[in-house]
Design a protein around this nucleic acid. Structure first.
Lengths: 144, 144
DNA sequence: CTACTTGCAAATGCTTTGCAGGAGA
DNA sequence: TCTCCTGCAAAGCATTTGCAAGTAG
């Protein structure tokens, strides 16, 4: 399961002559286990031996290899998650008070309607949609 | 039309003992005219006599007064727009190449379905939704 | 061996803040 | 006149980068 993921990541990195080093592997493992987008601070806490600068650089590389996606939350911290095609299509609950991000999925029927509406609407604007992100803003159970 | 907006903004600022000064008024007018979220850089260009530090401070105040909303795009620049209840509920086309943001609205039926699905789903997570934002990522007509 | 990576430290650049003077009510 | 606001300049702080040493293949 995790092994397959690692192989896939390695293959995508190879496409641009990038190597799947220990640090990168550790980041991917962390993201895969987290189940939520992870901030740099959390990465630093989870991987104390990985310098921040390396984490940043690795994340840039992983992002450009198409295996990691940057998520913008409501605080000032970048967060990262595995790319959509390595996980399930999902959306985020963003707590406006504490910045916490939780993954959620929408009912398939709603998601289908939404995608169709987006394609139609974007087309009318001459915009080529690659995907969408739906963030639900509010208060998490801890902050409510 | 713009006058009504100014009155409303002034009233909301008064609620927290804030004043509707020339700089703030200029920012609101600019946001109201723009029709798109506006970056600090664009504000600085549009209002050359307003120092950046004042713009930032004003935007913080306007945001906490509930008349302005911060929009996070895909580049490193904060963008701002009028709060939702001063405009129409809408979403954004985000160009991943140039960072351009375009306002769009979804068909009312889709929007209704979506809202209902969100309320239901968030409730199940113990999350209190205040609203949602839907960003459609892709390439604008200029970058395609 | 030849790139690609790493770690440290220094730099970048958007954003925030301290402080003294200015202005709204 | 009492606060709130402004402008400038000086931080703050997440993120990026230069460079020399390390390492994967």
């Amino acid at each position: 399961m995790l092994d397959e993921l690692h192989e896939l990541v390695e293959a995508r990195l190879r496409r641009t002559d990038q190597r799947y080093t220990a640090g990168r592997r550790a980041i991917i493992a962390l993201l895969a286990t987290a189940g939520n987008p992870v901030s740099i601070t959390e990465i630093a806490r989870g991987l104390p031996d990985l310098p921040r600068s390396s984490a940043y650089r690795n994340l840039v590389d992983l992002e450009s290899a198409g295996v990691v996606r940057r998520v913008v939350a409501h605080d000032d911290f970048a967060r990262f998650e595995l790319a959509e095609d390595l996980t399930e299509h999902h959306h985020h609950l963003l707590c406006v008070a504490c910045g916490k991000v939780t993954d959620v999925t929408l009912a398939a029927r709603v998601e289908r309607n939404l995608s169709a509406a987006i394609v139609e609407m974007a087309g009318a604007e001459g915009f080529r949609p690659h995907g969408h992100r739906l963030d639900i803003l509010g208060l998490c159970s801890a902050c409510a």
